[in-house]
Amino acid sequence: MSAIAVAPAPGRTKAFLRLVVIEHSIFALPFAYIAALSAMFLTGNNGSGGHVHWLQLLLVTVAMVGLRTFAMAANRIIDREIDARNPRTAGRELVTGAVTMRTAYAGSAVALMVFLAAAALLNPLCLALAPVAVIPMVVYPYGKRFTDFPQAILGLAQAMGPIGAWLAVTGTWSWDAVVLGLAVGVWIGGFDLIYACQDVAADRGDGVRSVPARFGVDAALYGARGAHVVTVLLLGWYAWLTDAGWAFWMGLVVVCAAFVYEHSIVKPGDLSRLNRAFFKVNSFVGIFLFAFALLDLVLRGLGV
């Protein structure tokens, strides 16, 4: 029996968390918080009277992290053979054996149950709509096998976060949340276009489909720029729909500057700083926009 097979549970847990890159939850959580807190402060439908309902916020966090963990585990399981043939991903845990298939399946099942339990505790509508959030998470890794635009499926999956967070707080549908969700989906789809550029050679050789593999790196980077322009426009639309104050608009200006920087350091002939653009800039975008959005909500609550 291998050392991996008899590794203690804590070791397997740490390896599983590395497999799903748990720290990348930071990309989606800020926008879910923007939606949840906006719903609390602007609608009052949750009975909070404009105050933070901490239990709801905790459940939103648990649901988001649970769903993302399930999605990442499913992605790694489904793509393990493709990952093994790509030099960049050949070191991933399922390929090397650092995480067994049994652990991956068990971890994904636990994460899915955590998500469903959090959805059930939030309200009946969240539980009823939970499958709508789960399905695109599973379809996405298969997308690269049947479409040149798998990033569109990823964007759709990520758009569910803010919409679900708003539903979690109010129990009712909101077009404001849909606009915010679309902004998140287009944003993440755009930076995934950038990320996919590093795998063009491997994808073409393996028959994996993507925008860069089909249309080239130049087209993918132009597509990412266009996606981020649309993201800014959608965030501006959301700000207008929710009567956002100067703080939110200032945050949007900072986001614009971050996007300009991101696209200035990644060029068709130079992808050497791609990881900086993907990981650092995009985590910055989510965190700083959330900070300014929270400031805006606090100032409005104070009547400033």
Rank of each mutant, 00 (worst) to 15 (best):
L180I: 10
V217I: 15
H263M: 03
G226K: 06
K14M: 14
V65S: 00
D203V: 12
Y261T: 10
A201Q: 13
L234D: 08
P141I: 07
R209V: 03
N86E: 04
R276N: 09
T61P: 07
G251I: 08
R68I: 10
K267P: 01
A202M: 00
G269V: 08
T231R: 07
I135R: 01
Y140C: 06
I163K: 02
L29V: 15
E93W: 04
R92E: 12
A36M: 04
S174N: 01
L29E: 09
P124Y: 04
F215G: 00
V184C: 13
G164E: 04
F284H: 08
D199F: 12
P10A: 11
L302K: 05
V285Y: 03
V178D: 09
V110M: 02
V65H: 03
R276D: 15
F16W: 14
W54P: 00
V217R: 10
W237R: 07
A63Q: 02
P10R: 11
A90V: 12
L42N: 09
D176P: 00
D218K: 11
G303N: 09
G190A: 15
A74Y: 02
F146E: 03
P212E: 06
S108C: 07
I153P: 02
T89R: 02
Y261I: 08
G143N: 08
V132P: 05
A165N: 03
S264L: 09
L17R: 02
L116V: 11
Y238P: 02
P162H: 10
I163D: 01
P131A: 07
T96C: 04
A257Y: 05
T61S: 15
M72A: 13
F248T: 07
G97V: 08
F16P: 04
L193W: 05
N275F: 14
V184W: 01
G47K: 06
P124D: 02
L154T: 06
R76D: 13
R12T: 03
V285H: 06
G11F: 04
K267L: 13
R85I: 01
T61E: 05
M72R: 06
F115R: 10
L19D: 07
F288A: 14
I194L: 15
V304R: 09
S48H: 00
A196V: 02
F215D: 06
V184N: 13
F259H: 10
H51C: 00
W173L: 14
I34F: 03
P162T: 11
Q56P: 00
R273K: 15
A32M: 09
A36E: 03
D270R: 10
A74M: 15
Y261Q: 12
A111I: 05
R12E: 06
L167M: 10
